[in-house]
Design a protein around this nucleic acid. Structure first.
Length: 423
RNA sequence: GGAGGAAUGGCAGAGUGGUCGAAUGCGGCAGUCUUGAAAACUGUUGAGGGUCACACCUCCGGGGGUUCGAAUCCCUCUUCCUCCGCCA
């Protein structure tokens, strides 16, 4: 959520920056500015009325105390009108405050200056590429074929017990999955992230805090009876750990990592792009989350990018990094880098990580503040990234490490797996 | 699920109708002392709105009510604790 003060002071600049997302926010920001003004005007009136009533109350108290009940009763009469007035004003105030909140929820984050303008993923900017793309035999298979051949992932079985997009991992497939989770968590811990285990269902306030709510309800599974949401990413519970917190400046950086399953409804696509592990309703992910001092957040973002690079190097997967363009940027992010692994057998890049700086956008919703050295409380910056998302890493490993004799396991994972080939 | 108790500032914890935005302690910040640090001592320190700055307004779990006036009384919801029941 953008800060009102910023909208008041830099409306034109914000409109220009938001334009990078391919949207014209003029009308929305005008509405906000107008509602804001309305709200403040009403607030001023209400404050004056209340100040008046407070003053009278004090006088009445004094009069009663000194035994002048007669005079007190005269003053009492005058408070009646004030009461009604303040009631009306309060109603008006609530109405415009609600409208203001609603309008603010509709404005996405302002893209960072380095974000390229653009509409679709074709406009994303490749900033880095590394790792040799292996040459495979002509009969190399995509991972969904490999999964069947070696009986390590069963998609049909998942359909039977739940539905499409809920695979069952079997035998060495399950073990490899667990190995990846442990490996990622260990890497993240070693890099200074505190490992957390968090609930997989969250309440509405948490969804609002990180920006999944309102307006994007349809993307999350909702448990109606208890009014809880299945998390689409660990970002939600982990970042919300800090909701309504006022931290000390020297608490920074706050670094967490967590493994969770992720649940996404993601209706509406089809074909090879959603085959196999490419897109699922339930998948596993290890997330890293940071809360930072505003002056440090972009250094931290670079650090997160470097950290993820080291993991992919160890796994020896060819990867590239994209700077997302305005049109592809998530609603709450100011700057996002996507990591993609090249899947040789599918001959395409698969997104395996998304690393973002949200600046104060989430913090404003979360009321996540820190006490500055001058004693003022200010909004912190939040960041997060996948380190990493399992299914497509798994797909990349299966496809890129396949040989005529079976699938090799990347060296760093062998101690976690307890085997070095699937064959 | 049943019975009882509780929710107050960054934390702990007083406060049962006006003098309470709220004692005290801890923590934080500044200073004295010290080569430096610690200890000790002194001062300072809740959040939000509003203002150029004051004034002023709001906030004692959420919502509603009583009253001229509510942290304090009433209703309701939520959460936590204790005991009982059930249970991985």
């Amino acid at each position: 959520m953008l800060q009102l003060q910023a909208i008041r002071e830099n409306k034109e600049a914000l409109i220009a920056a938001l334009n990078k997302r391919g949207i014209d926010a003029t009308a929305l920001l005008d509405t906000v500015a107008q509602l804001d003004e309305q709200r403040r005007a009403t607030q001023t009136q209400l404050d004056a009325t209340l100040a008046n009533a407070n003053k009278l109350s004090k006088e009445i108290g004094q009069l009663f105390k000194t035994g002048k009940a007669q005079e007190a009763n005269v003053l009492k009469e005058r408070t009646t009108a004030l009461k009604e007035e303040s009631k009306t004003l309060t109603d008006t105030l609530n109405t415009s405050a609600e409208a203001l909140q609603k309008a603010l929820y509709q404005i996405p984050n302002v893209p960072h200056s380095s974000v390229p303008a653009g509409v679709t993923e074709a406009d994303n900017e490749e900033i880095f590429q590394e790792g040799a793309i292996p040459t495979l035999n002509a009969d190399a298979l995509p991972h969904w074929e490999l999964a069947k051949k070696y009986d390590i992932i069963d998609f049909e079985l998942g359909v039977k017990i739940t539905g499409a997009g809920f695979p069952v991992y079997k035998g060495k497939g399950a073990r490899l999955q667990r190995a990846l989770i442990s490996y990622f968590l260990d890497k993240n811990s070693a890099a200074g992230y505190t490992e957390m285990q968090v609930p997989h269902l969250v309440n509405e306030a948490s969804g609002l805090g990180t920006g999944q709510l309102p307006d994007k309800e349809g993307q999350m599974y909702h448990v109606g009876e208890d009014d809880l949401y299945l998390i689409p990413t660990a970002e939600v519970p982990v970042t919300n750990l800090m909701r309504n917190e006022l931290v000390a400046e020297n608490d920074f950086p706050i670094c967490y990592t967590a493994y969770t399953p992720c649940f996404r409804r993601e209706a509406g696509s089809y074909g090879a792009h959603v085959r196999g592990l490419n897109r699922l309703h339930q998948f596993d992910k290890v997330e890293i989350v940071r809360v930072e001092h505003p002056s440090e957040s972009y250094n931290a973002l670079d650090g997160m990018v470097e950290h993820i690079k080291t993991i992919l190097r160890e796994l020896q997967l060819p990867f590239r990094i994209l700077r997302l363009c305005g049109g592809d940027l998530g609603f709450t992010a100011a700057l996002t880098y996507d990591f993609e692994v090249f899947s040789t057998a599918q001959d395409r890049w698969l997104e395996i990580s998304s690393v973002s700086n949200f600046e104060t956008y989430q913090a404003n919703r979360l009321k996540l503040r820190y006490k500055d050295s001058d004693g003022k409380s200010r909004l912190a910056h939040t960041l997060n990234g996948s380190a990493l998302a399992l299914p497509r890493v798994l797909a990349g490993i299966l496809e890129n490490y396949q040989t005529a004799d079976g699938i090799n396991i990347p060296e760093v994972l062998v101690p976690y797996c307890g085997f070095d080939t699937i064959g």
